[in-house]
Amino acid sequence: MTEAQIPFRCEDIHVAIESKPVVKGVTLNIKGGEIHALMGPNGSGKSTLVNALMGHPSYSLTSGRIFVNGENVTEMPPHERSRHGMFLAFQYPLAIPGVTVANFLRAAVKARVKDDSEMKAFRKTLLAEFERLEIDPAFATRYVNDGFSGGEKKRLEILQMAMLKPSIALLDETDSGLDIDALQIVSKGINTVVNKDVGVLLVTHYQRILNFVKPDFVHVFMGGRIVRSGGPEMAAQLEKEGYEKIEKEVSRIAEVA
């Protein structure tokens, strides 16, 4: 696979919030069709990492480089990163009162097409995605996330992902706040949208979603670093033993070092 074909690569990412280091050197390679789970306890910096990768204004990237399809996007503002193929599904999607889902998605799609003639199929594509993801088309006329339930917000994130067709999807705790039914629906949506061209970084605290969205790799994230990487079996092990065991091992290694 050539460099340009690798949807996502980041090297030695360091992130600070108000000059306090939170992410301390993260390197990831995510190929098309691969699902990487990033698991870690609360406060470990998982959300900070994915938000910083997308270019959140409050988080400063103190060092490291980000590549999407081989292109260096490190210096780009969020909207340019998005247009180059990055997508972030938010843990807490924001409401935009007064802006309908259809108009919001129209603006987002329009921002990445070369000329307006490509917008002709927009409505048809949108309706097709509603059908594919089994979402009520009445969603289109509702205001973005305004009065949405937790499950509806997450489904709308997945719908946006389907419409924007990213190369790399960063899913930030897409499972949080969902009951089991909603989790299954959202997971089904992720599986429907993800194909061999898309890489996924699925951030989660719990193993639960990984029963429905099967990861190829699992990374354990603690204290701003990936401390373990392994196959899908590691998720089950984590669920059984908790993060504490790894935490102890890691601190032992740190002492030895």
Partner: peptide
């Protein structure tokens, strides 16, 4: 808010307009 729309490819001026 601007970041949320930015993460969808919408530039800051258009985000504010929206």
């Amino acid at each position: 808010e601007v970041f949320y729309l930015g993460a969808r490819g919408i530039d800051p001026a258009e985000a504010v307009r929206l």
